[in-house]
Amino acid sequence: MAHYDYEEKKLSVSRREFLGLLGVGAAVIWMGAYVTTDLVKNRKKYIRMRAQGLYKDDGQSVIRQSHNNKALMDMYAQFAGKPLSTVPQELFHTKYVDRINLGGVI
């Protein structure tokens, strides 16, 4: 019969301590989840901040509609005529390309 001197080390965690450790563990996991949630929420924050910057620019503008832009109307009067007329059709409008049916360019 083999004989072992080894005596198992006693791990004595009382019921009270066990519940305490459980609580600490739960808190760690919970905080991790909280941090991750925050991260997910805030990752779009810079988009909202930049968007607010543009809405602020709009809000503080004296003129807020395109058709009231006087310099633009001057341009139409002196140069382009009316929207969608000949000169704008030449310069400010375009056509699109069906790329599915477009041959390859090497």
């Binding site: 968007a51 543009l54 620019d57 709009d58 503008s61 807020r64 395109s66 832009n69 310099a71």
Partner: peptide, 26 residues
Amino acid sequence: NPLAQYSGAGTIFGNTGGVMEAALRT
């Protein structure tokens, strides 16, 4: 500079919904 004059509608083009909002105003 006449080419640097813009309305509030022009500036919100950079936001989602901005082109729509600007177009609706006009």
